[in-house]
């Protein structure tokens, strides 16, 4: 499989662009014309060929540039990647999971050769070749979690399972939608979700937790989450909010199509074998509204979803002030015609 990797930026000049292929495979998250929280979990076991669901860890045209951006974030703030001491074993589990999955799913891009615990990893797109001893941190330039997630798209929260709860005890978080790993590390499932409005009363988190506690080895699950971002900025962290927050106020009716992005997270859940921990990859996909509306069904539907979204959700997702601008823009692409069920283009 050949992928043409972009050379683009997610900050400053924002040269990020989606190719036609990227637009067509974008994970549009709305299966109907309105949105409310649900425990929308399904098995993560493949998907339509070429879709983002097909492989265990999707690699796309943004791979190399996203990893460059991650390295910049970490150089500026190393606290974006932390692992409490008891989570090193889980880090090795994750390293193995990603190396095995990617070398099997993308054999032209990644290779893994194992001779007992002597491993040899080759990452062609990033030009990395590493020999190391599995389970021996002294043979890698970083801890196992940091090492492998510096080479994998998306954020990673690694959750320790104890006392009928999940605890966010390690993570690599550089493309988050506005939450802080440094602040939340050590919290349990209900605590780190505490700021989310409405969902608690709905019992969503109780049901979700019960499902996640029972996710077993070899049977991963997935769901989609979404928000909005102005400019294709990956690092929308609270840490840097005092720098990027101002960008939200810079849109005009002329620029909203180009600057306003729908940001969709593919969240997957894998049970890790040696540590019994649960890894929670959060893979971020961005699309400018002007590209999204080239799929007529998506244009109609997004207009209706954003227009009718409850105030608390639009506020929590950070776009309440820009909502009128967004709805006005999208209304041009909604002729009122009925839309088909499901997320796929017609």
């Amino acid at each position: 499989m050949t992928i043409q990797f972009n050379d683009e930026s997610f900050r400053g000049e924002y040269t990020f662009r989606n190719s036609d292929r990227a637009i067509k495979r974008f994970p549009f998250p709305f299966h109907e014309d309105s949105y409310m929280y649900s425990v929308n979990m399904e098995r993560h076991q493949g998907g339509p060929e070429g879709s983002i669901y097909e492989k265990r860890f999707d690699v796309d045209e943004h791979y190399v540039s996203e990893m460059k951006d991650r390295a910049l974030v970490l150089a500026d703030d190393p606290l974006r990647c932390q692992s409490l001491p008891h989570m090193t074993l889980a880090g090795w589990d994750l390293l193995e999971l990603i190396m095995v999955s990617k070398s099997e799913d993308y054999p032209d891009l990644f290779e893994l050769h194992r001779d007992g615990n002597n491993w040899h990893w080759i990452n062609k797109p990033m030009g990395i070749e590493q020999k190391f001893v599995f389970m021996d941190e002294t043979t890698l330039p970083y801890g196992p979690l940091e090492y492998i997630t510096r080479q994998t798209q998306g954020d990673f929260a690694v959750l320790d399972q104890r006392d009928d709860n999940l605890w966010m005890d390690a993570g690599m978080i550089t493309t988050q939608a506005d939450w802080s790993l440094d602040f939340d590390i050590g919290m349990n499932f209900f605590e780190w979700h505490a700021p989310v409005p409405k969902a608690n009363e709905m019992g969503i988190f109780i049901r979700a937790l019960k499902f996640l506690l029972n996710v077993q080895q070899g049977m991963p699950a997935r769901r989609l989450n979404w928000t909005m971002t102005v400019n294709p900025l990956l690092d929308t962290s609270p840490e840097n909010y005092h720098k990027w927050g101002i960008q939200k106020t810079t849109m005009t009716p002329e620029t909203v199509g180009q600057k306003q992005h729908l940001r969709v997270e593919l969240q997957t859940f894998f049970r890790l074998p040696r540590s019994n921990a649960l890894v929670f990859p959060i893979r971020c996909y961005l699309i400018a509204l002007q590209d999204l509306v080239t799929v007529p069904k998506w244009g109609r539907r997004l207009h209706r979803v954003i227009r009718d979204l409850p105030v608390e959700l639009a506020t929590y997702k950070g776009f309440i002030d820009n909502r009128p601008l967004i709805v006005d823009y999208l209304s041009q692409f909604d002729d009122g015609a009925p839309t088909s069920d499901g997320i796929w283009p017609d």
């Binding site: 802080s180 602040f183 939340d184 590390i185 050590g186 919290m187 505490a194 700021p195 609270p238 909010y241 005092h242 720098k243 990027w244 927050g245 101002i246 939200k248 106020t249 002030d321």
Partner: peptide, 27 residues
Amino acid sequence: GLNLFVRDHYSRRLAAFQGVCIDAEDP
């Protein structure tokens, strides 16, 4: 020296509540 608003979100590990810049979008 940033102006911060007070959140109820609390970290046991830091033994502190979270403060976030209040005038980022309207300096």
